[in-house]
Design a protein around this nucleic acid. Structure first.
Length: 226
DNA sequence: AATCGCCGCAACCGCCCGGTT
DNA sequence: AAACCGGGCGGTTGCGGCGAT
């Protein structure tokens, strides 16, 4: 089953957006809201693909966007979030108000990657390049040929290796009841080492709000998607 | 002044997923 | 259950700007 194209490719503009197109899109969304992207271009009088309109709006025309250079604090936050989430740019963007996933992705690829490499850190694993290489060599030595089954796979075919996210300071073995452990747990910003940032909420009552984890439980709604 | 190569960023593409019919 | 649709995501591309030669 093939998919119908999102628009008539033959009759759509491509490439950079003109001022007039931007104005039309903004005016339409201000008047009617975002609504259905597929039908929006026709309704707004734009010869553009709906996806293209959506991207233009989300990445550049939305009024709540913060333009300009990334601050050192944002840099740190992106690096730490990336070490936890990997290339989940929309999740990372959800934690940086006014920044978009595309912007962060570009910034990562052009600036942060290089910065980490210069510091001898592998941007994928966030470990020192030396350490990562040694580990890789060990893997080859330990498991032999690449098609050979790994020991754990042999023993535990159903082993679930799903990633679990847990607050760094959370002590599973703590004898204290959860409500009394509150102060041991850091707020989201402190967990990432940016405790003096605007968003730091330690003084308030939001204990354990790490990556949207309330008392160690993932709260979806706090992980704003773009 | 002209050319070349590099870099950054805006935009596109293909795929996936969830919801609806 | 299958087909279809729209929205969203991550990877990639291509163009324009800018510095070096």
């Amino acid at each position: 089953m093939g998919r119908s194209p999102c628009c008539e490719k033959a009759h759509t503009n491509k490439g950079a957006w003109t001022k007039e197109e931007d104005d039309r899109l903004v005016a339409h969304i201000q008047a009617h809201g975002e609504g259905c992207w597929r039908s929006l271009p026709r309704a707004a009088g734009l010869l553009r693909c709906g996806k293209s309109c959506r991207l233009r709006w989300i990445n550049y025309l939305r009024p709540d966007l913060k333009r300009g250079n990334f601050t050192d604090e944002e840099d740190e936050l992106i690096i730490k979030l990336h070490s936890l989430l990997g290339n989940k740019w929309s999740l990372i963007a959800g934690r940086l108000p006014g920044r978009t996933d595309n912007e962060i992705k570009n910034y990562w690829n052009t600036h942060i990657r290089k910065k980490l490499l210069n510091q001898g850190i592998d941007p994928s694993s966030h470990r020192s390049i030396k350490e990562a290489t040694v580990e890789e060599e060990r893997m080859v030595e330990g498991f032999g040929f690449k098609n050979q089954k790994q020991p754990d796979e042999e023993k535990c075919p159903d082993l679930n290796l799903e990633l679990q996210i847990c607050p760094p300071s959370y002590q599973h073995s703590s004898p204290q009841p959860l409500e009394k452990r509150g102060r041991e747990m850091l707020c989201f910003y402190c967990s990432l080492g940016v405790e003096n940032s605007k968003g730091c909420s330690c003084s308030g009552n939001s204990r354990g709000d790490f990556l949207g984890l309330k008392n160690g439980v993932l709260e979806y709604r706090s992980l704003n998607m773009k």
